[in-house]
Design a protein around this nucleic acid. Structure first.
Lengths: 111, 111
DNA sequence: CATACATATGATAACATATTCATATGAAAG
DNA sequence: CTTTCATATGAATATGTTATCATATGTATG
């Protein structure tokens, strides 16, 4: 079969891409990023909002911090989280939009 | 702490989003989508291009088909795959762009 | 119609990720 | 300085994902 020279995604990019998508793929982390895009919040506020275990939330926040998607600031006893990488929201929004399209009738596939 | 009414991503959206990101997260599937965005290819062509097992490629193609990201056409003995959902590329590209930014110096975080 | 070729599939094994539980840390307030 | 409150962490467990192997299917060709 006749093939043009096809470009592949190189390994470094692939690894980085995987990291980002792995972080976003998790529903808890996605929610966290989503609410942090609206307002900076302390851990216990996030716990309340999402009705999840403190420990679980902390673990996920730790993952997000590790990859520098969020950063922290202490205020009194609480630790507040904020988005450290607004660009990540472009991906989140693009994906949410896509999900929305798919749910509203799979436009691309009405056979 | 004073909180605005914060919006959450609803469960249905969350589930759909997860499906999409799970598919994209895998490097093999991501490569496949990337090369199919350049040209329709048969299974064996993909196998050659990516230097992977036929069985592995078939499994991944099956996943992509299952969620209607790709579709197939038989031509002679071969089965050709094509993107069935071009919009998915927006997410892919957004993510690749992001990965590129991060790799080229983590612009958002030069402290 | 028997064989070859391309692709698909089911079962299992190897590996990764998420959740839970128990406990540690570390700042703040008495 | 010791108790309390908020958050973090490590280890164990549960769950999900990916790769591999053996084999099945289905079309084409002699």
């Amino acid at each position: 079969m006749k093939q043009k020279k096809l470009k592949l995604i190189d390994d470094v990019m692939l690894t980085e891409t995987q990291k980002i998508l792995s972080l976003l793929k998790n529903p808890v982390r996605l929610q966290i990023l989503y609410i942090l895009s609206q307002q900076n919040l302390s851990v216990s506020e996030i716990v309340e909002l999402l009705h999840l275990d403190q420990s679980l939330v902390s673990h996920h926040l730790s993952d997000l911090r590790k990859y520098q998607l969020v950063s922290t600031k202490r205020d009194g006893k609480s630790i507040f989280y904020e988005l450290d990488d607004p660009h990540i929201l472009d991906i989140v929004n693009e994906t949410l939009e896509h999900a929305d399209h798919v749910l509203k009738g799979k436009k691309h596939n009405e056979k």
